[in-house]
Amino acid sequence: MTLQDTGLAAYNFAYLDEQTKRMIRRAILKAIAIPGYQVPFASREMPMPYGWGTGGVQVTASIIGPEDVLKVIDQGSDDTTNAVSIRKFFEKTAGVETTTRTGEATVIQTRHRIPEAPLKEGQVLVYQVPIPEPLRFLEPRETETRKMHALEEYGLMHVKLYEDIARNGHIATTYAYPVKVEGRYVMDPSPTPKFDNPKMDNCAALQLFGAGREKRIYAIPPYTSVVSLDFEDHPFEVNRFEQPCALCGAEGVYLDEMILDDKGGRMFCCSDTDFCEERRGEAESVSASNGEIV
């Protein structure tokens, strides 16, 4: 095991001690065995704040090995401040290779997005989860929600979605849109936009979810059915953008709205920065100078 001497204190490979990793791996295995079920685990204090990805970091630290290639994204981008911070953490504590390319990564830790490029077998997508309980805002008590899951008592969630339709004519949930996993557990997909929900279904990669503050791990094994909750007469729909990405011209991808000036000027471009860059790299007509927005 690699011990990194930082002068004052020595830390294990990928920060966590091996006993902790074993405990987390056991929770992960249980989570994989019961897709969508929230497994309690003895979450540790991490050297970054709760709510900033401690669950995802613990999962990544427990599964990563020296041969892995890590990608970290936040809001789809590799260069958002917290993604940079987490990537640096693993560069420092595990010395693993990192990448921004989705295709080259074996482990991808993400907050709020799923990459646009389809994931492959052998890849692991690790989600950072703030509130793992999909029923939490309907029922604040853990003692109650655990019972509801155990009894598969999801009427409350359907009533909530129905009330949305009654009030607004459509379901007014745009992110953290609840899904049902393998026909059993209702699961929170983490606050990804509902645009990303269909990517979870029958995905070739293993999807792991870590909630550090709430001390829960859950999982979607490869090729598992993930269905967004809806009604026959109000089927689930993803949000569509009216224009393609202003930088790479991609359609059918999730876009960020950039405010250009104080006169209402704006442009839409890919939220997945790696996807956008790779497309622009392929297209010869786009000159390199257009590649950066400042």
Binding site: W52, Q75, T81, N82, R111, T174, Y175, F195
Partner: peptide, 22 residues
């Protein structure tokens, strides 16, 4: 420590979700 982390995480970018709400 838990409370301060989660309250202060609101400082992190949330523009993807905000876009969906917009």
């Amino acid at each position: 420590v838990q409370a301060t982390g989660f309250v202060e995480h609101l400082k992190l970018p949330h523009y993807v979700d905000f876009q969906a709400e917009l």
